[in-house]
Design a protein around this nucleic acid. Structure first.
Lengths: 206, 206
DNA sequence: AACTGTGAATGCCTTCACAGCT
DNA sequence: AGCTGTGAAGGCATTCACAGTT
């Protein structure tokens, strides 16, 4: 669609965005590359490089205008409106639902799914819970394009298959299991176990 | 301590390990580089490169012996025994506690902390919950070296400071807030919001 | 003086290509 | 024939260094 942005860069831009939103809400109008650098834990040069991909122009002594910067990021990599399904309404699912009642107007978790009869038809963190069997139907009705997997590991692959069948284009997997999806579906794994083990390793070496 | 392993490599090794543990439990004795590659979604050459850092020797037609491979990884990057504190026993904290009652004998979440009187002194997912004020004391008693932050964003920095004061060497931050820690403490952020936004972006472009 | 913008240099990571083993 | 082990090439990301701007 445009100049190809690498996975790494997308991540950094999203982090910049987080910082810029906070800064804007705090009333700031401009930001320096070294401030962003500190926030994202990278070098100022890196930040300026990234900014070269946008149209924002910074000015010595003033920095970059936050409003334009945000508009530019949003234009480039924030989809207009994304409807998301949460599958699994255990502790983890509820935690993520609670997160997303926050900011981020463009991304909404519009439906939750579970197999526990206790939860069906209840509204949890502002999100209605359906039975997992009605996923395909609800997904079509609500135009759902993303799925979040927060079910036990043993159901993860089955859930992924259901989501793919229901037509989602992207999946975020929180379950501690490796799942596979076909071509054309983007899969992002949040590997909590690995993150903790990695921390254990680096905490140990320094 | 040894040949310097990059952050990226550590992550890959930990992913290999996950796969190897599963394979071992499934009764397999050897594994091919292309199997690991498929599991970790990288190229077989990359896997073999990584393996060059270990002492395992593979053999054509047979692959790598899983047992030795695992021993090698563990020797190189799994600390003997790591005691972890969980701070925040909301949905997210409970979800992570539940995860870790699983495998991973070397990493144990030995204490949880919260400020809600309802939770103090209860045992949640096999983990005793203390008042946050006793963090420093319990951390010393239990030899805690890692902290997991699962509190609301507004308390994240304060929690991080408490953990650093209590002497932890690494922190995993689940709160949607940017926190800073001094030198000598490793900080790993699990950025759920960014992960979902990234997925939204890539799902959209392909 | 302080900060941006960017060509050039560096360094790292990944892939290629192929020799060697079983 | 199939897979490992690895030098060499290639590509990508980061940092350096400095000219340009206010």
């Amino acid at each position: 669609m445009q100049d190809k942005i690498s996975c790494r860069e997308v991540e950094r831009f999203l982090r910049y965005r987080q910082f810029l939103l906070d800064a804007r809400d705090a009333g700031k109008e401009n930001v320096f590359s070294h401030e962003l650098a500190a926030a994202a834990d990278i070098s100022p040069e890196q930040v300026r490089r990234d900014i070269m991909l946008l149209h924002v122009n910074g000015r010595p002594q003033k920095g970059y205008p936050i409003k334009e910067f945000l508009d530019d990021i949003e234009l480039k990599l924030i989809p207009r409106k994304v409807n998301v399904a949460m599958v699994g309404v255990g502790n983890l699912g509820r935690a993520v639902l609670a997160y997303f009642t926050k900011r981020r107007p463009n991304i909404s978790i519009v439906a939750a799914f579970d197999s526990d009869p206790e939860k069906i038809d209840r509204v949890i963190s502002g999100c209605k819970c359906y039975h997992i069997d009605s996923l395909a139907q609800v997904a079509k009705e609500q135009n759902i394009v993303l799925g979040i997997i927060a079910v036990p590991a043993s159901y993860a692959q089955k859930t992924a298959d259901l989501l793919v069948t229901a037509g989602v284009k992207g999946i975020v997997n929180f379950a501690p299991a490796n799942i596979t999806v076909g071509e054309g579906v983007y899969l992002e794994k949040i590997d909590i176990t690995t993150a903790i083990e990695k921390t254990a390793y680096f905490a140990n070496t320094l």
